[in-house]
Design a protein around this nucleic acid. Structure first.
Lengths: 339, 339
DNA sequence: CCACGATACGACAACGTTGTCTATGACGTT
DNA sequence: AACGTCATAGACAACGTTGTCGTATCGTGG
């Protein structure tokens, strides 16, 4: 157990604890020589400030919370955690995770108590939590600052981090076009899903720019689940003039399309190119590997945590609505090829 | 923000803060009437003890850490977190996660500092962290108590939670037998992997019990990755007398077997039964769904966190080596059928 | 050489709890 | 009536840090 305290450092350095405190917190008012001496001692003794004492005194907890829902795959949440953790480590913060929909845990009171007791300095809110009005209300009622990751709506309500779904879908469509595809099908996500809408917009725009009138039957409805991808793919491939490439609004549905193709004896990518969106775990492990848009999830979460941590120095931050945009990129795997 | 403190409660209740403290911590020495009055007040004012003050004074942090490596899929880690979180919530603890292998974070110093600063009451260690001697050494050097989840070796080194891999594999094999399969192939995991070894043992024992001499060529080597499953499956299916059922030591490899079967034009489960082990996300989303052994990962982590929390009341716990066994069950999906 | 403003540092009181020790009654026993 | 015993409760000092304010010490300009 680390039993050395600020007092020990102070004694050995022959200074007051306040001076050590100043060094730790990079405050000014310490001479270079003294600072160096104290820093060496801290290093040598492996001293770490006691978080509890610190936060008791400073009213900061050095804790960043990540609030998430257990929904579908863990991949997204995992990436978020990894990213947020990077930022936290860098800044000497810790990361606490709070889950809001475990069966039996009323999301309201459960979350509220956890937040109260946790004394978080700030929260990172990935989807879908970042778009849940009920949860946002609870958080705001506590006066906590938070940054949303890839929110669906309510832009301007709070600081957030995002990527340009529409532009990404546009690029992907353009890439298929450049590969020689002309009949490009699209599998849509849920109607109320902002990202899905933006992805469809991107597809539509790219097609329009190239002078193509997208036939209504080229767009098949889906719900982001694999089964819906299979059904939608089946419908598209059953058309009199089936598309030569299918762009699914997420990877799961693209996987469904792969199944649909295989059911019809079509081989991918020879007979059909299939591309997705997300670059989740499926994309890499499927065979053939899925060409897809890589979402910088970890990076977005990292940026979010960073914004929070930076913001604590500046209280005005809370009321500002900052936004930070991060870059996607397209990952070329085996599921798409030129026609 | 919750600005009410123990002093407010004490004043309004007309008692000393110590008495309120006693009520909060369920200590004895408080009359029923007083206790009720204080409890009501706490409820009414929505008072939550300040964690920092509490842990500063009591030298307990009310923080459980989950240390994990970013390895392969997030599913396992996700389940662990969900389970541990359940236990933490119940007991009023918070859960902090620490990652040990993010690029650029030296696992040694990085973890050590995080642990020192974090002041965890205890750690939950899922695989593969629970079998990493280097990491265990660091943790033990800090004098932290920890419970391992499904460790591979070093039983007795610390308390742990586990399930009986061997028995599960035995059961699964028996089930295939009961479905009429006689030539049952097995795809092994990495040689140095304890669970893999136990699973193979289970398979062997079940076969032996039924008087079958397992031919060496029925067992194909694998490394838990999908590709190795594909190759191993290909080898098994290429035998003069191919197995009618293949039991892969994990789901990923079972997925590979599905691909191998499809490459050969065999349909699952009509021509070949395929079963896996883990019940990860792949098992449900594959087509056909994979019959597999469900590992109670979340439950194991929950039990681990519980053991830690219970143990804090009893310091002797640290030196004891407790173990808790949890039940698996077999999930029947579409990939296996009777012959 | 003095006054003066910086600069560098220290003393001391918070912060909100828990741990330890002590005080007060009520009650039963001799 | 005097005395222990028990249940209940409070006073007070930690815990390890930061915030506030005060005070030496130093360099500088007049």
């Amino acid at each position: 157990m680390s039993d050395i305290t600020i007092v020990d450092i102070a004694k050995q350095a022959g200074v007051s604890i306040k001076t050590v405190s100043r060094v730790i917190n990079r405050e000014e008012g310490v001479g270079p020589a003294t600072r160096a001496r104290v820093e060496d001692l801290i290093e040598k003794l492996g001293y770490r400030p006691n978080v509890s004492a610190r936060s008791l005194s400073s009213r900061r907890s050095y804790l960043i919370g990540v609030v998430f829902m257990r929904v579908g795959a863990y991949h997204y949440v995992g990436e978020v955690q990894v990213g947020a953790m990077r930022a936290c480590r860098r800044a000497g913060y810790h990361m606490v995770i709070e889950q809001v929909d475990d069966p039996g845990q009323a999301r309201g009171p459960g979350l509220e108590q956890a937040l109260k007791a946790g004394r978080f300095d700030g929260l990172v809110l990935p989807p879908p939590v970042c778009d849940d009005p009920e949860i946002l209300a609870i958080i705001e009622a506590q006066g906590l600052s938070y940054v949303r990751v890839a929110p669906d709506r309510d832009f301007g309500r709070s600081p957030y981090v995002f990527m340009d779904d529409q532009q990404a879908a546009h690029d992907m469509t353009a890439r298929l076009w450049d590969l020689g595809h002309r009949r490009i099908g699209f599998i849509d996500g849920p109607a109320d899903h902002g990202s899905a809408r933006r992805r469809r917009e991107g597809y539509m725009t790219a097609m329009a720019e190239r002078g193509v009138r997208v036939k209504p039957e080229w767009i098949a409805g889906g719900d982001f689940m694999p089964l819906s991808g299979l059904e939608a793919g089946d419908r598209l491939l059953g058309l009199p003039e089936p598309p030569t490439a299918i762009f699914a609004a997420n990877d799961s549905m693209a996987m469904g399309v792969l199944s649909a193709a295989s059911k019809r004896g079509l081989s991918v990518p020879a007979d059909l190119s299939v591309v997705g969106f997300d670059d989740g775990p499926l994309a890499e492990s499927s065979w053939p590997g899925l060409t897809t848009v890589h979402q910088p999830i970890a990076e977005m979460a990292e940026a979010a945590a960073e914004m929070l941590i930076e913001g604590f120095g500046d209280p005005r931050f809370r009321s500002r609505t900052a936004a930070r945009q991060l870059d996607y990129h397209i990952v070329e795997r085996g599921s798409s090829t030129s026609r």
